[in-house]
Write a protein that binds this DNA or RNA. Structure first.
Lengths: 102, 102
DNA sequence: CCGGATCCGTATAGATACTG
DNA sequence: CAGTATCTATACGGATCCGG
């Protein structure tokens, strides 16, 4: 990873991708079951979804809870660190709403 | 591009990458010559830099001005649309400062 | 000289089918 | 239902070359 003198670089290493902010944004309303969350992220592939939530979990932004039932049930939720991104995520959503046509 | 019901998706299509926010952030202070700007983005390759500023220009976030001199001189600056991202960029920088160790 | 275009080898993303 | 395996397509990095 390249070193940079600005903290923004650190932020981008955690959420500077196409999918991570979307996943975090949809978790702002509360925990979601894996399949439900994935369906909300339209266009993401199965592989990228799994890979991305793993990275978010490793970086401490989301928590993963496995319920030992059949059929399998997994829930994702925001950690405190993840919740602290709420302002940024909502700002990005609002900015998009300002310029998005149709 | 996948369709999504939230405007956040639109935002991420414009700035949801590793480099775009960094470039925009460094232009907040004013226009910069191409080489100077690139040096500030530590770790970016020549190819990615050129490609990324082209995309930012096409999306109307930055402006590119070419001076017909020798040696060549090119300056990049934020458009009004680009400037409207200032809050988001500074928030991301501040968030990184909060969690960044060393 | 500076900005950036091109070429090629590697790495990462994406689609699909499959397993417990 | 959640996640993995495999294969293909695309994105990326680095070196090199080019025009002004």
């Amino acid at each position: 990873m390249s070193k940079n003198n600005c903290p923004l670089h650190y932020t981008l290493n955690l959420i500077g991708t196409k999918w991570k902010p979307l996943i975090l944004f949809h978790l702002l309303e509360g925990p979601l079951r894996s399949g439900v969350l994935q369906k909300k992220i339209s266009g993401i592939s199965n592989k990228m979804f799994t890979q991305t939530v793993r990275e978010l979990e490793q970086d401490g932004l989301i928590a993963r809870e496995v319920f030992p039932v059949v059929p399998p049930k997994v829930e994702y939720s925001l950690t405190d660190k993840g919740k602290s991104l709420e302002n940024i995520l909502r700002n990005m959503d609002e900015w998009g709403a300002t310029f998005y046509k149709d």
